[in-house]
Amino acid sequence: MTQISRDDVQHLAQLSKLQLDDDEADALAADITKILGYVEQLDELDTENVEPSYQVTGIKSVWFEDEVQRSDVGREALLELAPEAVENQIKVPKVL
């Protein structure tokens, strides 16, 4: 059975962009180990030569006409949603 450690959880948290303290990480390590242990029962199923079902109603790629669609929602309304906006742009702290 797969064992997930605190370090594994912190690595996953990094991939998932989540800040966790050590207590949270320990609790999640126990939970995730348990959940992976449960889902691993799928190994009992023979799925050789079986195609995966990512989409269940048979719809294939649906295309739009290549035309500009005007949204009802304007730039002002969207910028108002941003926690910080300056001169028509959304402001974030430095990237590096």
Binding site: D43, V50, E51, Y54
Partner: peptide, 8 residues
Amino acid sequence: KAQKARTL
């Protein structure tokens, strides 16, 4: 594996 099992 899960998506294949889904087919079954």
